[in-house]
Design a protein around this nucleic acid. Structure first.
Lengths: 159, 159
DNA sequence: CTAATTAGGACTAAAATGGTGCTCTTTTCG
DNA sequence: CGAAAAGAGCACCATTTTAGTCCTAATTAG
Protein backbone atom coordinates (compact mmCIF):
# COMPACT_ATOMS: atom_id res chain seq x y z
CA UNK A 1 0.00 0.00 0.00
CA UNK A 2 2.21 2.71 1.26
CA UNK A 3 5.35 1.86 -0.51
CA UNK A 4 8.54 3.72 -1.09
CA UNK A 5 9.62 3.86 -4.68
CA UNK A 6 12.41 1.77 -6.06
CA UNK A 7 14.38 4.95 -6.54
CA UNK A 8 14.15 5.86 -2.88
CA UNK A 9 15.33 2.43 -1.99
CA UNK A 10 18.27 2.79 -4.33
CA UNK A 11 18.90 6.23 -2.94
CA UNK A 12 19.27 4.82 0.53
CA UNK A 13 21.73 2.31 -0.80
CA UNK A 14 23.71 5.08 -2.42
CA UNK A 15 23.73 7.22 0.71
CA UNK A 16 24.66 4.24 2.75
CA UNK A 17 27.59 3.60 0.48
CA UNK A 18 28.69 7.19 0.82
CA UNK A 19 28.42 6.92 4.56
CA UNK A 20 30.74 3.95 4.55
CA UNK A 21 33.23 5.70 2.26
CA UNK A 22 36.26 7.62 3.36
CA UNK A 23 36.29 11.39 3.50
CA UNK A 24 37.48 11.68 -0.09
CA UNK A 25 34.66 12.15 -2.56
CA UNK A 26 33.38 9.05 -4.31
CA UNK A 27 32.35 9.25 -7.94
CA UNK A 28 28.93 8.24 -9.14
CA UNK A 29 30.47 5.54 -11.27
CA UNK A 30 32.28 4.00 -8.33
CA UNK A 31 29.14 3.87 -6.29
CA UNK A 32 27.22 2.42 -9.18
CA UNK A 33 29.62 -0.43 -9.63
CA UNK A 34 29.72 -1.08 -5.92
CA UNK A 35 26.01 -1.44 -5.56
CA UNK A 36 25.49 -2.91 -9.00
CA UNK A 37 23.17 -0.37 -10.53
CA UNK A 38 23.35 1.52 -13.79
CA UNK A 39 25.71 4.43 -13.80
CA UNK A 40 23.17 6.80 -15.26
CA UNK A 41 20.63 5.89 -12.66
CA UNK A 42 22.98 6.35 -9.75
CA UNK A 43 24.12 9.61 -11.22
CA UNK A 44 20.58 10.85 -11.42
CA UNK A 45 19.98 9.82 -7.84
CA UNK A 46 23.05 11.63 -6.63
CA UNK A 47 22.05 14.76 -8.44
CA UNK A 48 18.75 14.78 -6.67
CA UNK A 49 20.39 14.11 -3.35
CA UNK A 50 22.84 16.91 -3.98
CA UNK A 51 20.05 19.23 -4.95
CA UNK A 52 18.34 18.47 -1.68
CA UNK A 53 21.52 19.17 0.23
CA UNK A 54 22.00 15.67 1.53
CA UNK A 55 25.29 15.21 -0.26
CA UNK A 56 28.01 17.60 -1.33
CA UNK A 57 29.42 17.38 -4.79
CA UNK A 58 32.85 18.03 -6.10
CA UNK A 59 33.26 18.55 -9.80
CA UNK A 60 36.15 17.82 -12.00
CA UNK A 61 38.60 15.05 -12.15
CA UNK A 62 38.86 13.22 -8.83
CA UNK A 63 35.53 14.72 -8.00
CA UNK A 64 32.56 12.93 -6.58
CA UNK A 65 30.18 13.05 -3.70
CA UNK A 66 30.33 13.05 0.07
CA UNK A 67 27.62 13.01 2.70
CA UNK A 68 26.75 16.55 3.63
CA UNK A 69 26.00 15.49 7.19
CA UNK A 70 26.67 12.49 9.37
CA UNK A 71 24.37 9.60 8.65
CA UNK A 72 22.77 10.06 12.02
CA UNK A 73 21.60 13.51 10.99
CA UNK A 74 19.86 12.53 7.77
CA UNK A 75 16.27 11.47 8.22
CA UNK A 76 14.25 8.96 6.27
CA UNK A 77 11.77 11.71 5.51
CA UNK A 78 14.49 13.81 3.93
CA UNK A 79 15.61 10.95 1.74
CA UNK A 80 12.10 10.43 0.46
CA UNK A 81 11.63 14.12 -0.13
CA UNK A 82 14.91 14.39 -1.95
CA UNK A 83 14.17 11.58 -4.35
CA UNK A 84 10.45 11.54 -4.79
CA UNK A 85 10.11 15.28 -4.62
CA UNK A 86 7.61 17.18 -2.56
CA UNK A 87 4.57 15.17 -3.45
CA UNK A 88 1.54 17.35 -2.99
CA UNK A 89 -0.50 15.87 -0.19
CA UNK A 90 -3.64 17.53 -1.38
CA UNK A 91 -5.05 18.46 -4.70
CA UNK A 92 -7.49 20.81 -3.11
CA UNK A 93 -5.39 22.95 -0.88
CA UNK A 94 -6.49 25.16 1.95
CA UNK A 95 -6.98 28.15 -0.29
CA UNK A 96 -9.15 26.54 -2.89
CA UNK A 97 -11.93 24.74 -1.07
CA UNK A 98 -13.74 22.12 -3.06
CA UNK A 99 -17.47 22.00 -3.37
CA UNK A 100 -18.09 18.95 -1.27
CA UNK A 101 -17.43 20.30 2.15
CA UNK A 102 -20.06 18.15 3.75
CA UNK A 103 -18.08 14.97 3.35
CA UNK A 104 -14.61 16.40 3.28
CA UNK A 105 -13.83 15.71 6.90
CA UNK A 106 -12.99 12.21 5.90
CA UNK A 107 -10.21 12.86 3.47
CA UNK A 108 -8.84 15.23 5.99
CA UNK A 109 -8.21 12.42 8.39
CA UNK A 110 -6.08 10.73 5.77
CA UNK A 111 -4.02 13.83 5.49
CA UNK A 112 -3.49 13.82 9.18
CA UNK A 113 -2.40 10.25 9.03
CA UNK A 114 0.02 11.20 6.31
CA UNK A 115 1.40 13.93 8.46
CA UNK A 116 1.76 11.62 11.41
CA UNK A 117 3.62 9.09 9.35
CA UNK A 118 5.85 11.78 8.04
CA UNK A 119 6.62 12.94 11.53
CA UNK A 120 7.54 9.41 12.50
CA UNK A 121 9.80 9.13 9.49
CA UNK A 122 11.59 12.27 10.55
CA UNK A 123 12.71 10.42 13.60
CA UNK A 124 14.41 7.66 11.68
CA UNK A 125 17.94 8.36 10.51
CA UNK A 126 19.97 7.04 7.63
CA UNK A 127 22.09 5.48 10.29
CA UNK A 128 19.09 3.55 11.60
CA UNK A 129 18.42 2.43 8.09
CA UNK A 130 22.03 1.45 7.49
CA UNK A 131 22.71 -0.43 10.62
CA UNK A 132 19.36 -2.08 10.63
CA UNK A 133 18.94 -0.92 14.17
CA UNK A 134 15.53 -1.58 15.54
CA UNK A 135 13.12 1.24 15.38
CA UNK A 136 11.98 2.10 18.89
CA UNK A 137 9.20 -0.15 19.99
CA UNK A 138 6.87 2.72 20.51
CA UNK A 139 7.26 5.42 17.97
CA UNK A 140 5.62 8.64 19.07
CA UNK A 141 3.43 10.13 16.41
CA UNK A 142 2.31 13.71 16.48
CA UNK A 143 -1.10 14.28 17.89
CA UNK A 144 -3.38 14.74 14.99
CA UNK A 145 -5.76 17.54 15.44
CA UNK A 146 -8.39 17.41 12.80
CA UNK A 147 -8.80 20.74 11.22
CA UNK A 148 -12.15 21.10 9.64
CA UNK A 149 -12.21 23.67 6.93
CA UNK A 150 -9.02 22.50 5.40
CA UNK A 151 -10.26 20.23 2.77
CA UNK A 152 -8.87 17.09 1.25
CA UNK A 153 -8.29 16.43 -2.34
CA UNK A 154 -11.42 14.38 -2.66
CA UNK A 155 -14.40 14.74 -4.75
CA UNK A 156 -14.36 18.00 -6.55
CA UNK A 157 -15.52 16.94 -9.92
CA UNK A 158 -16.87 14.13 -11.99
CA UNK A 159 -20.20 13.88 -13.66
CA UNK B 1 5.53 11.20 -0.22
CA UNK B 2 3.47 8.44 1.22
CA UNK B 3 0.14 9.29 -0.17
CA UNK B 4 -3.06 7.37 -0.37
CA UNK B 5 -4.57 7.21 -3.80
CA UNK B 6 -7.53 9.27 -4.86
CA UNK B 7 -9.52 6.08 -5.11
CA UNK B 8 -8.83 5.16 -1.51
CA UNK B 9 -9.91 8.58 -0.47
CA UNK B 10 -13.11 8.19 -2.44
CA UNK B 11 -13.57 4.76 -1.00
CA UNK B 12 -13.49 6.16 2.49
CA UNK B 13 -16.12 8.66 1.48
CA UNK B 14 -18.27 5.87 0.11
CA UNK B 15 -17.88 3.74 3.21
CA UNK B 16 -18.57 6.71 5.36
CA UNK B 17 -21.76 7.35 3.47
CA UNK B 18 -22.80 3.75 3.94
CA UNK B 19 -22.08 4.03 7.62
CA UNK B 20 -24.40 6.96 7.89
CA UNK B 21 -27.13 5.24 5.90
CA UNK B 22 -30.01 3.33 7.37
CA UNK B 23 -30.01 -0.46 7.53
CA UNK B 24 -31.63 -0.79 4.11
CA UNK B 25 -29.13 -1.24 1.31
CA UNK B 26 -28.08 1.86 -0.56
CA UNK B 27 -27.51 1.69 -4.29
CA UNK B 28 -24.27 2.70 -5.91
CA UNK B 29 -26.09 5.38 -7.84
CA UNK B 30 -27.51 6.92 -4.71
CA UNK B 31 -24.14 7.07 -3.07
CA UNK B 32 -22.61 8.50 -6.18
CA UNK B 33 -25.05 11.35 -6.34
CA UNK B 34 -24.69 12.04 -2.63
CA UNK B 35 -20.96 12.40 -2.73
CA UNK B 36 -20.86 13.86 -6.20
CA UNK B 37 -18.76 11.31 -8.02
CA UNK B 38 -19.33 9.41 -11.23
CA UNK B 39 -21.66 6.46 -10.94
CA UNK B 40 -19.29 4.11 -12.72
CA UNK B 41 -16.47 5.07 -10.44
CA UNK B 42 -18.44 4.60 -7.25
CA UNK B 43 -19.73 1.32 -8.56
CA UNK B 44 -16.23 0.12 -9.19
CA UNK B 45 -15.21 1.15 -5.73
CA UNK B 46 -18.11 -0.67 -4.15
CA UNK B 47 -17.34 -3.80 -6.07
CA UNK B 48 -13.85 -3.80 -4.72
CA UNK B 49 -15.06 -3.14 -1.22
CA UNK B 50 -17.57 -5.95 -1.55
CA UNK B 51 -14.91 -8.27 -2.85
CA UNK B 52 -12.80 -7.49 0.18
CA UNK B 53 -15.72 -8.21 2.46
CA UNK B 54 -16.03 -4.70 3.82
CA UNK B 55 -19.52 -4.26 2.44
CA UNK B 56 -22.35 -6.65 1.73
CA UNK B 57 -24.17 -6.44 -1.55
CA UNK B 58 -27.75 -7.11 -2.38
CA UNK B 59 -28.63 -7.62 -6.01
CA UNK B 60 -31.80 -6.92 -7.83
CA UNK B 61 -34.21 -4.12 -7.69
CA UNK B 62 -34.10 -2.32 -4.35
CA UNK B 63 -30.68 -3.80 -3.97
CA UNK B 64 -27.55 -1.99 -2.93
CA UNK B 65 -24.81 -2.11 -0.36
CA UNK B 66 -24.50 -2.12 3.40
CA UNK B 67 -21.51 -2.05 5.67
CA UNK B 68 -20.50 -5.59 6.48
CA UNK B 69 -19.30 -4.55 9.92
CA UNK B 70 -19.70 -1.55 12.17
CA UNK B 71 -17.52 1.35 11.18
CA UNK B 72 -15.52 0.90 14.33
CA UNK B 73 -14.48 -2.55 13.15
CA UNK B 74 -13.14 -1.57 9.74
CA UNK B 75 -9.53 -0.49 9.74
CA UNK B 76 -7.79 2.04 7.57
CA UNK B 77 -5.41 -0.70 6.51
CA UNK B 78 -8.28 -2.81 5.27
CA UNK B 79 -9.68 0.05 3.25
CA UNK B 80 -6.37 0.60 1.56
CA UNK B 81 -5.95 -3.09 0.89
CA UNK B 82 -9.42 -3.38 -0.53
CA UNK B 83 -9.00 -0.55 -2.96
CA UNK B 84 -5.35 -0.50 -3.86
CA UNK B 85 -4.98 -4.21 -3.75
CA UNK B 86 -2.22 -6.11 -2.02
CA UNK B 87 0.67 -4.06 -3.22
CA UNK B 88 3.71 -6.23 -3.19
CA UNK B 89 6.10 -4.84 -0.65
CA UNK B 90 9.05 -6.49 -2.23
CA UNK B 91 10.06 -7.39 -5.71
CA UNK B 92 12.67 -9.76 -4.45
CA UNK B 93 10.81 -11.96 -2.05
CA UNK B 94 12.20 -14.26 0.56
CA UNK B 95 12.41 -17.20 -1.79
CA UNK B 96 14.31 -15.54 -4.58
CA UNK B 97 17.26 -13.78 -3.00
CA UNK B 98 18.88 -11.12 -5.12
CA UNK B 99 22.55 -11.03 -5.86
CA UNK B 100 23.43 -8.01 -3.81
CA UNK B 101 23.19 -9.38 -0.37
CA UNK B 102 25.95 -7.23 0.96
CA UNK B 103 23.92 -4.06 0.77
CA UNK B 104 20.49 -5.49 1.10
CA UNK B 105 20.12 -4.80 4.78
CA UNK B 106 19.21 -1.28 3.90
CA UNK B 107 16.17 -1.88 1.81
CA UNK B 108 15.07 -4.27 4.46
CA UNK B 109 14.76 -1.46 6.92
CA UNK B 110 12.35 0.27 4.61
CA UNK B 111 10.25 -2.82 4.54
CA UNK B 112 10.18 -2.85 8.28
CA UNK B 113 9.07 0.72 8.27
CA UNK B 114 6.35 -0.21 5.86
CA UNK B 115 5.23 -2.96 8.15
CA UNK B 116 5.26 -0.67 11.13
CA UNK B 117 3.16 1.89 9.33
CA UNK B 118 0.79 -0.79 8.28
CA UNK B 119 0.44 -1.97 11.84
CA UNK B 120 -0.36 1.56 12.92
CA UNK B 121 -2.97 1.85 10.21
CA UNK B 122 -4.62 -1.28 11.46
CA UNK B 123 -5.34 0.55 14.66
CA UNK B 124 -7.29 3.31 12.96
CA UNK B 125 -10.94 2.60 12.23
CA UNK B 126 -13.31 3.92 9.62
CA UNK B 127 -15.08 5.49 12.54
CA UNK B 128 -11.95 7.41 13.47
CA UNK B 129 -11.71 8.53 9.89
CA UNK B 130 -15.37 9.50 9.75
CA UNK B 131 -15.65 11.39 12.96
CA UNK B 132 -12.32 13.02 12.59
CA UNK B 133 -11.47 11.81 16.04
CA UNK B 134 -7.92 12.46 17.03
CA UNK B 135 -5.53 9.65 16.58
CA UNK B 136 -3.94 8.78 19.91
CA UNK B 137 -1.03 11.02 20.66
CA UNK B 138 1.34 8.15 20.90
CA UNK B 139 0.66 5.45 18.42
CA UNK B 140 2.44 2.24 19.26
CA UNK B 141 4.28 0.74 16.35
CA UNK B 142 5.45 -2.81 16.22
CA UNK B 143 9.04 -3.37 17.20
CA UNK B 144 10.94 -3.84 14.01
CA UNK B 145 13.34 -6.64 14.12
CA UNK B 146 15.60 -6.60 11.14
CA UNK B 147 15.73 -9.97 9.54
CA UNK B 148 18.84 -10.42 7.56
CA UNK B 149 18.49 -12.97 4.84
CA UNK B 150 15.13 -11.72 3.76
CA UNK B 151 16.08 -9.36 1.06
CA UNK B 152 14.49 -6.20 -0.20
CA UNK B 153 13.49 -5.44 -3.69
CA UNK B 154 16.61 -3.41 -4.31
CA UNK B 155 19.31 -3.79 -6.73
CA UNK B 156 19.05 -7.03 -8.52
CA UNK B 157 19.79 -6.06 -12.01
CA UNK B 158 20.86 -3.17 -14.17
CA UNK B 159 23.95 -2.95 -16.24
C1' DC C 1 45.30 20.88 -22.88
C1' DT C 2 42.99 16.70 -21.65
C1' DA C 3 40.65 13.50 -19.09
C1' DA C 4 37.50 12.82 -15.43
C1' DT C 5 33.51 14.18 -13.40
C1' DT C 6 29.27 16.70 -12.06
C1' DA C 7 25.00 19.74 -13.77
C1' DG C 8 21.00 19.88 -16.05
C1' DG C 9 18.18 18.61 -19.12
C1' DA C 10 15.43 15.99 -22.74
C1' DC C 11 13.73 11.81 -23.95
C1' DT C 12 11.60 7.06 -23.92
C1' DA C 13 9.34 2.80 -22.50
C1' DA C 14 6.68 0.65 -19.28
C1' DA C 15 3.56 0.56 -15.58
C1' DA C 16 0.12 2.46 -12.52
C1' DT C 17 -3.93 5.30 -11.95
C1' DG C 18 -8.35 7.16 -12.77
C1' DG C 19 -12.32 6.70 -15.13
C1' DT C 20 -15.94 4.71 -18.48
C1' DG C 21 -18.71 1.20 -20.84
C1' DC C 22 -20.70 -3.13 -21.93
C1' DT C 23 -22.89 -7.46 -21.17
C1' DC C 24 -24.71 -10.75 -18.02
C1' DT C 25 -27.08 -12.31 -13.82
C1' DT C 26 -30.09 -11.59 -9.94
C1' DT C 27 -34.14 -9.89 -7.77
C1' DT C 28 -38.27 -7.29 -6.88
C1' DC C 29 -42.69 -5.96 -8.21
C1' DG C 30 -46.65 -5.11 -11.07
C1' DC D 1 -44.66 -13.92 -16.52
C1' DG D 2 -42.08 -9.91 -17.89
C1' DA D 3 -39.98 -5.53 -17.22
C1' DA D 4 -37.10 -2.68 -14.61
C1' DA D 5 -33.62 -2.03 -11.15
C1' DA D 6 -29.72 -3.34 -9.24
C1' DG D 7 -24.99 -5.60 -8.84
C1' DA D 8 -20.86 -8.72 -11.13
C1' DG D 9 -17.27 -8.91 -13.95
C1' DC D 10 -14.77 -7.56 -17.38
C1' DA D 11 -12.40 -4.96 -21.07
C1' DC D 12 -10.97 -0.67 -22.46
C1' DC D 13 -8.85 3.99 -22.74
C1' DA D 14 -6.36 8.31 -21.40
C1' DT D 15 -3.32 10.39 -18.46
C1' DT D 16 0.26 10.44 -15.22
C1' DT D 17 4.05 8.49 -12.90
C1' DT D 18 8.14 5.80 -12.71
C1' DA D 19 12.40 3.97 -14.14
C1' DG D 20 16.02 4.41 -16.84
C1' DT D 21 19.08 6.35 -20.66
C1' DC D 22 21.63 9.77 -23.09
C1' DC D 23 23.49 14.09 -24.55
C1' DT D 24 25.75 18.54 -24.00
C1' DA D 25 27.86 22.02 -21.09
C1' DA D 26 30.61 23.39 -17.10
C1' DT D 27 34.45 22.31 -13.79
C1' DT D 28 38.70 20.95 -12.14
C1' DA D 29 43.08 18.11 -11.30
C1' DG D 30 47.19 16.94 -13.29
Amino acid sequence: MFRISKMTDYGTLVLSELGAAADAPTSAGDIASRIGLGGATVSKLLKRLAHAGLVNSQRGSNGGYTLARPASAISAAEIIDAIEGPVAITDCAADQPCDLEAVCGVGNAWQNINRAIRAALEGISLDDLRTGRDIPEVMPLQPMTIRRGQLPRSATQNN
